[in-house]
Structures are given as structure tokens and as C-alpha cells.
Design a protein around this nucleic acid. Sequence first.
DNA 1: CGGCGGATTGAAGGGAATCAATGCTTGTGG
DNA 2: CCACAAGCATTGATTCCCTTCAATCCGCCG
Lengths: 248, 248
Amino acid sequence: MEFGRSLPVYAPSAMEDILVGTQLLRRAFLETPSLSASRGDVIIAVGGTEPPTLLIHCGLAYRSTSLPDGQRAITEILLQRDIVGAEHAAVGQSDREIIAASTLCYRLLKAARMRELMHDPRIALRMIALAAEARLRTERHLTEVISYDARGRIAGMIYGIYERLRHQELIQRPTFNLPLTQDQIADHLGLTMVHISRTLRRMRDEKLLFVYRGVVIIHDVGELRRAASGYPPASARQPVQGDREPVG
Amino acid sequence: MEFGRSLPVYAPSAMEDILVGTQLLRRAFLETPSLSASRGDVIIAVGGTEPPTLLIHCGLAYRSTSLPDGQRAITEILLQRDIVGAEHAAVGQSDREIIAASTLCYRLLKAARMRELMHDPRIALRMIALAAEARLRTERHLTEVISYDARGRIAGMIYGIYERLRHQELIQRPTFNLPLTQDQIADHLGLTMVHISRTLRRMRDEKLLFVYRGVVIIHDVGELRRAASGYPPASARQPVQGDREPVG
DNA sequence: CGGCGGATTGAAGGGAATCAATGCTTGTGG
DNA sequence: CCACAAGCATTGATTCCCTTCAATCCGCCG
């Protein structure tokens, strides 16, 4: 299987159990009160013992860490319906914090309760699956940061979010809200805000996508997918007649 | 908790169960035949359905993926006693392959057997813990690649491996074997072999560490740890009296 | 209005990539 | 026993993507 943007595939013989586990876990979440937070609020702090597991109902959050020199690294973008930190059932503390990027509604499940629920092997399987999904996303992101330039990384990020939203049937068209500042995007992709701004501008000129004030419009999904696989822009591939100049 | 190199902490109330689960899982592995592979062999290929879980007895392996343009990204370094792919119990296929970096002895546990074992909640908890550890390592690596320059990345990698080996009590002194070529290190850190070579040379001149033909000797563990936290070399800091590190 | 967070744009500099040549081991075969 | 090739590592010269520094602009809100 080539490195692609496809979503994780469950083991066929585990599928049924996982689906039941998904339901059961969701039900457990729904027994807890619905909470809300506003932009910038810390949902799960570092240092707390036995951090809970988080279900996001609406809004966007991110997982980040602060380095000694003051730099921030955003390791994961968290969307609606994501369940975050299933592994907190086993790990006593996290060195990442989870922060609301927009107004957020969510629910929390205590670590102890998670361990209780895990006595049902179907829920345990679901938790493994959740951990595997998160891992897959992180590894993909890592691969992009290791291998791609700014254009490829941005394409990978936007296309990945697009696919996740589409898979959840949260959007039909290639347009969505992305309440992240360019500074946050930069800390996610390992670039500077200045360079994000420039690269977004070039991608807009390329008629690939449009990002402005928290709104994303993908103009050319196919080309974005290619870019997210590391391919350079068409104009840079072949100096065919009628092609545009290489951008400076 | 600051971003550091410390190893994961288990939830106190889960500790006992996890330890039992560790034993049980190890026992299950020992019921399978011991296998061996030589340098370059593919242990777990991409595309195979229901890939097994892997226990490494001796030697070193890595997890990698190939991009359409032929580039390779090595996302994880796997050491002795590591259990790899616990999440394969739930995920039907992996888009990463696992390759022996040296002569390797290992055992495999089928996904179906993993799911059976998971009916014991203690083993399930152990599997979650394993997934969490792997995730932690990957996130740390991601953070380093996002935030650090070549020197910091190399320091992070070497110091991380040193800590893992030490924690397993596989080494006492700051010296170990690392059967990776500079090309492989480059594909792990998102740099080129040429630049790895140059940077290792500079770090050797700095009397920080020595890497030659698969042997690592850390000369200054304290300074390496600092470097692995993103601090620049002492010589680059202001030689002003009482100068303090960049503030967090 | 004034201030502020966020975004844009320009100019200059640096870290890493690329291109290219050379050296060093190791293993193989004549 | 030496020649030779292959894989890996080193080093220099040049190029380029991205950072840094700095100025400006825009929309928002007290």
C-alpha cells in the first residue's frame, strides 16, 4: 500500500466488535455532562495526574507542547467527534496540553471509568483502534514534516482535515472552517508564520486553495491531493508552452 | 511537566494490572517460535492483511515508509525488548514496513491471538500502555523535527536511545551500538546524509559525542541532554557572566 | 480614536540541500 | 595476494528554501 491519505482500515474479523465498542463508548460519554470552553482555554493541562479522555462535540482543539526556549509545537489537530487520549487509561500523565482553538463543546470521561469500561473487550478493542488512528495521523504528519517542503506540508494538512471531515460526513463540499491562526499552523508544520503566509499566497495564485480568516476553500481537490503526496506544482514539472513562470 | 526526555509514567491505580499484563503478554510471546532475520530484511511488509505484533529480542529494526517520489521516511527506531504493532489487533493493515537494521532475533504474535489475549483486561491495559509509549516517542520525535535544527535533532535521537537502553538496563555506560547508516539517520531526522556527516563532525569537535561505524560514545551526557532539549552549544551562547538560558 | 492581534510584504542572511569529487572498508574473484 | 567493485562516509563549492528582521496594513473592539 502506497503512502496515501486513505483512512485506517479495521481488521475484518475485528470490525463487528469495534462497531459495538464504538457505540458503548459513545453511550458512556453521553452519561457525562456536556461542557464548553472558549478559544484559548486549556482543556487538559500538563502535569495533572490521571488525565481524562475527551470527546469533542463541536469546535476545534489542538494538542501542543511548549519547549524550554518558549517555542510551541502543535502535534495534532482535533476535530469534531474526535476522541482524544484514550491511552490516558494507562498513562498517568501527559506532557502535552489540549487547547481549544475555537468555542468548544465537549465531554470528559475519567481515566478510572475508562479502565472500568475496558473490561468489555469490545470497548478495549475500540480504544486500541482509537490509539491506532491517532498514531496513524501523527506518523503521517511526521512523514510530511520530514519529507515535504512548505507547499507539501500545507497541502497535507488541509487535505487531511478535508478527508477527516468528509469521512465523518460533516461536509459535502470542499469548504470548511479552520479556526487556526497562521501562527498556529506554522507551529504545527514546523515553519514560520511569515512563510505560511507567503506559501498560502502562492497556492492561492496557483488556484489550488483559498484560506482567509478561518475559512478554507479548496479549488482543485485533485491537485491538492497530488500536492499532499509530495508532488510539485504542475507549473514546475514541465516547461510546457503556455505554462506559467516558475514562482519566485 | 516540561518537555523532557523522561519515560512514560503509568497511572498509579493501573500499575499493578499493567505489570501483570506485561508478564502475561511476554509469556504468550514465548510460546511462539523464535525467528531471525539479517540486515535489510523486511519483517512486516506493507499491504499484508492483519499484520502480527512483533517482539524484538536482539538487534535493531526500524519502521519506515516510502513516498511516491522514492524518498524514504523512517518514523521509528525499534530496540531490543520493544513490542511493536500492538495496535495491529484492531487495524487491518499498516502503511509502514518494519525492516531489520542489523541481525535480528524476534517473535511474532498473530493479530487474532492478540485479540484473544485482549479478553484479559490486564493484557488489554498493557496493550494500551504499549500504544501510548509508542505514541509518546513518535510525538517527541515529531516535536524535535518541527522545532530543532540538525544538532538538536541528532542529540534528541541519540539521547532518546540512550535513555531507552539505560531504562531497560541494557547498558550501564554512555556507549552503545547503533547499526544505522548515516543515510538511515538522515531519513529519520528529515535531513540529508551529507548534513548528518557534517553535523556529527561538529559535535565530535565539540567533544559532545562520537559516532563511528555503528558505535556511539557519549562524551558529555549532561550537555547532550541540554542539546536534546533544544539548547544551542555552549560556545554559541553569550559568554556573559551569569547568562541564563532562553526563558520559557 | 487608538491600540492590538493577526496578516502581508520586502530585504537580507543562514542553515541545509544539491552537486560533485575523493577516501575508506569490506567482500569477492581472479 | 592483489585488484576491483560496492557501500558508506567525508569534504568542498554552490544554490535555494526558509528564517529573521522590519515595516505596513487590516479588521476589530474597548
